[in-house]
Every structure is written in structure tokens, then in C-alpha cells.
Nucleic acid binder design. Sequence first.
DNA 1: GCCGTTTTCGGCCCGACTGTTTTCAGTCG
Length: 569
Amino acid sequence: MDNIQISRILYETAFWMEMAGENAFAIRAHSRAGTTIKRCGRPVTTLLREKKLQTLPGIGAGLAKSIEEYVTTGKLQQLEELRSQFPRSLYGLLRIPDLGTKSIRLFYETLGIATLESLKENSLNGELAKLRGFGKKKIEKLLAGISFAEAQEGKFLLPRAERAAEEILTFLKTLPQLQKCAVTGDLRRYSVIVEELHFIVLSSEADTVLDALKEKYELQPVEKNEKAFPVFQTPEGIPFHLSFVDEASHWIPLMLASTGCAEHLAQLKTLCKDNGISWEGHVLTDSAGKTLNFETEEAFYEALSQPAYPPEVREKIQLISSDRPLDLVESSDIRGLVHCHSTWSDGAHSVEEMALASSELGYEYMLITDHSRSSVVANGLSEETIIEQHQEIDRLNVKLNGIRVLKGIEADILRDGSLDYGDDILKTFDWVIASVHNGLDMTEKEATDRLIRAIEHPYTAALGHPSGRQLLLRPAYDFDLEKILDAAVANQVALEINASPRRLDLDWRYIRLAAEKGVQFIISPDAHRIAGLQNVRFGVAMARKGGLSSCQILNSRSEKEFLQWQKKP
DNA sequence: GCCGTTTTCGGCCCGACTGTTTTCAGTCG
């Protein structure tokens, strides 16, 4: 059980306490404890063992007892009791952007609204408009939020899908009837979000394997389409299905087919025809009718005179010929971790802990970019704390071997496009990433002007999470991408490929366009804790989907080259 | 529910922004 799980339980408890009308300060204490634990660098389970839970600010005897109960039993009686008083679906309404607990409670108590459907109905039939504080604009906004939330239903972020797939694979591998299994589909291609998991299995006893799965997992109540095999679902509701082959020679064709995407597959089939290969079902045969048995996908692509397309680039893009070899960035090309937070703002680990972890992962440098002063809730750095942080970094660089810590900042782009420090402060940083964190409700023109002004700022080296989207939570703001890309090239500002799996921003579909215009990139973990450093691999996958090679990624350069690239005045 | 240069209950309580109001409530980061 990790800190994130525990913090979620505290937030949920706070939600139901508010629904139940409990003491506002008690509610606040729970949600603040949630934040404290989320940002705590040490595992709460360790603190609990050492009886040090109450050393955390805002955790007293009561909360410590609750946390202990949850950690040891996996349940929290108080939460169970609260949940039992209400329809569980109320909690899900929080997914609607701009809708908070106060409104949810009001809707429930006055109109009995507990589900997304009912909320939508009451928004449309005028019932909601009768409530004080709900005018035309608010209801319009609410309906847009409902549509967004509806569109996200049944979608999952990559890490969650990965964890689920890992568990299923582990289970499958225990079955003696199974020779081989693998995960394919959207997850293998590193799709930004995953709706279902697809596994392929080599076994001559498909029925036995399916029976074993039926015993362990629930079948999805409504079977999708007319798939040959049933659709199961994981305990957390992720649908998955399996495809079987019983001949080893069918393995690669099945793997290609189930990995997709459909357009890539169609192009492969055309290429097969051109090369005298017939592809029927999962059987590949040459012009003489002899079955072709490819050991690997690479061998298959080679037979088609194509470069070996790794799964993540098999998207709706024209295949290129083999005279232009794929030269895609690899995780091992990344030499520096840029955009990392620390305990100076809202990170869970100290600069030193983050630096040591980066060093252990083999990186040569790390750019610490804590939040700037406008991000009050994220504990953004005041001008005084910047000086202290820089002194600490200087001391660390004397002490640490093998890794260099660079002084950066994730400066807020204010509504008018300016940054929230003056030049006298900005010039003290090695690198400045400028990001939008608030005032997201802009028109396309406002957002574009705002971003361009930030790009034109002499100290901006990179634009952080350019579109502002948070996957499954809120859409990107509207902006004129071409203008932003042109401004980035003209002003020598890099665009970030934010590798946090809840952002993956810039989206890979825009990366291609950006690259054509000559934009340079950074791939950054946006890590708020040591574990977050690992997110870089998602960013690398997105860069690869976008067709980037290492020369387009600034943090694949040496520290010196990375620093020299920017146009500091 | 937590906290205390208030030692035992009373105070705690971000700030900007929006949309609804005409002085405020809700949401967000």
C-alpha cells in the first residue's frame, strides 16, 4: 500500500464527510492530511512501523488511528459507514470539471441527483436552473463538463492499464496449458489512453485457459460486438480479451494483427501482396504456397524490405521505405532529467534525494524546476527561497559525484502571458520552463496570444505541457498550434513532451507537425517524487510515435550542450 | 480533527477567478 492510495482514501473520506454535513474543519483536516501524505517522501507504512506518523504536520491521534486501521486491515470503518449512507455514484460526479462537493451535495439533497445521467437530465429539463446560483452560463459549462466526463468513461491511463495487464500475464503464465502469451493492442502501442486490454495466447487448449480465466475474472455482462472469444474484466473494470493460436507459425501474424493499428495493418497487407506473400487468417504463405514461419516481427518487416517498426509507431501514418532507416530516440539516449520538483515546492523528495535517484538511473544531470510563486497551493518559491535553494544546489554540486544539478524553475505564465518573476530573478536560473497552470478558460485567441508572449520572453527556454490537458480530467485549452510552433522556432524555445502519464503533452500527433517546422523538444518526467522519474519512458514512447530522433531532443545532449542551446540574453 | 511563546479549549480559514449576484459562493491549482 503506497502513499497515493492512502491519500486517496483520505480525500474520499473528506468528500463523504462533506456530503454528510460533518464539521467543516474536520473535513479540511482529512483533505489536508491527504495532501500531506501524497507529498510525503517516506512511505507512510514505514512511518507507521516506526510510530512516527504523528510527526507529520496535520496528522494527530485521530487521523493516525484511521491511517493505521486502513493500512493494517485494508478498510476504514468510518469510510464504509459514510459510503453506506449514499449512492456510491455521487463520488464519480467529481470527475466533472468545475463541479465540486458543494454543488454535488446541493443537487443530491434538493433534486435527488446521484448519477451523471440524472444530472444531465436535470440540466436539460430546467430543474437545475431553479436552484439559486445556477444561471445559464453555469449550466452550459456543466453540460460541457458532463459530455467530457461521459467521453472519458471506460478509459484508463497507461500505468493503470500496464499494472492490470501485468497481473493478468502473471496469472496466465501459471497455466500449464499455455506455451506463450503476450499483451498486444493499444497498450503495446503506447496509446495515450487505453480502453481495453488484448492478449494473445499460444495454446492448443483454449477452452481450458478460458475456463481458468472465468474462474478468476468476471465476464463482462454485455459482450462487445461479436468477438470470437468472451470479454472479461479486471476487478477495477478494465475489459480484456484473448486471441488464441495453436500453431507456432501463427504467432507473429496474430501478434501483428492484434497490435494494430488497423491502418498500419492494411498497409502491411498491401505490402505483402506486392511481395508475393499471402496473408489469410493467421497464416502467411509464399507464392509457392509454402507456410512462412517468422521467428520475430523484425524478420517479417525485413521480408517486406521495411524497417522494423516498433509497436508504438504502428499508427495511422504512411510507411516509409527502407532506404531511410528509422532513427528513433531511445530511452538510453536521454542524458539529463529535466522538469523535476522537490520538497522546495510540492515534491515529495529533496533535491538531493531526487539527484541521487537520477544518478542511480544513469542520468548525467537533472534540472530542478520547482513551482514559481504564483502557484500558491503548490508552495511556489518566493524570491527569498530561490536564493536558499540555489545555495543548496551549489553545496550539492560540490558534494555529489556523477550527477550535476541544474537550477531551473517552472515559471507560471500569467494571464497576460508574462512570467511571474522579474528578469533579475529569472536570470539566476540555468533554464526556465514556462507553463500555464491557471486561467484555463480562455478563447483560442487569448490562449494563443498568452502562449506566444511567454514564448517571446527572453528567459523562456521551453514551454511546459503546451496544451494544458489532463487526460481523463480536463481537455486542452484551445490554441492555434501552428502559430505556437512558428513562435517556438522563431524564438528558439523548445516544446516539452511532458511524460507524466496523466498529461502526455504535447500530444504525439502534434509532434510530427512540430518536428517538420524544426521545433526542438525536451522529454521531461515532471516528477514530483523519485518514482515519477521513471515516467520518462512514456515520453520517449510519445516522441517515438511522433517520429523523433535523439538529435531533436535537447536533453539527450550533454549538460554543456543542453545549457548552451538556449538563447539567454 | 489538529494545534498551542493560548496547556486545554477556541481558533483554524490560500487567492484568483467566475458566475451569479449586488455581496457572495463555489471551484481550482
